[in-house]
């Protein structure tokens, strides 16, 4: 059996396909209803390409054994308690969890700020959506990577993932996840309100089923 503490796995460069449809959806596009002429579409797609060129996806992942999962409490093998009935329900039946995090980097945040404050807000909102979706897609990529490794152990990850700030899994847990994932190694900081910086940085918990 796995007998030694796992190390945080750092991904210095995550390569994903540009999630264009998801970006459109995030911006409120509804197929069959939203009407965009060719000129506008071309402009938006140029913004999307530009945004993607600014995004530098990095990530981290860490497998953590579960000591036990009670109805409203998750006890990690590291001794950490997480009070959350929703998370406990999500991890029911798992012996292990995977903590993951990703960031779109600071360059894209500078560009968003520059556009929003400097007068091209239309481009700024597109870049903002691209950065959000790419950071999210990076988590999918990390999940895919671990699923590959787990296949050899006859294990797999739960479908879906759970993030701090949803339901009773309080945002305060972001600090514990930040520390465990050593997100400082990928250039992410956290403030006293548990907000990750650069802002387009995300974390999540996934269960591992044997």
């Amino acid at each position: 059996m796995r007998s030694v503490p796992n190390l945080v796995q750092i991904f210095s460069s995550i390569n994903i396909s540009l999630p264009v449809d998801a970006v459109y959806r995030r911006l409120g596009y509804k197929r069959g209803i939203t009407k965009v002429d060719e000129r506008e579409k071309e402009k938006i797609e140029r913004h999307i390409e530009y945004a993607a060129s600014l995004v530098s996806l990095k990530g981290a992942g860490l497998r953590v054994p579960l000591e036990r999962v009670d109805p409203a409490l998750v006890v990690l093998g590291t001794g950490t308690d997480i009070k959350s009935a929703k998370l406990a329900g999500f991890l029911k039946g798992c012996k292990e969890t995977l903590f993951i995090g990703s960031t779109a980097g600071s360059a894209v945040m500078n560009a968003i700020r520059g556009d929003i404050e400097g007068g091209d807000m239309a481009r700024g909102v597109v870049i903002d959506a691209v950065a959000s979706e790419m950071a999210d897609a990076a988590l999918d990529w990390i999940v895919g990577f671990f699923n590959r490794l787990l296949a050899r152990e006859s294990a797999r990850l739960t479908k879906g993932r759970f993030s701090a700030g949803y339901g009773d899994f309080l945002l305060e847990n972001q600090k514990m996840m930040y520390d465990m994932l050593e997100l400082d190694r990928i250039g992410v900081t956290i403030n006293e309100n548990f907000i990750l910086m650069p802002e387009k940085s995300v974390t999540a918990v996934v269960g591992i089923h044997a």
Partner: peptide, 12 residues
């Protein structure tokens, strides 16, 4: 409101 426009169009 009717979603015939989405955010980039509104902002533009």
């Amino acid at each position: 409101d009717r979603r015939e426009y989405f955010l980039p169009q509104l902002i533009a």
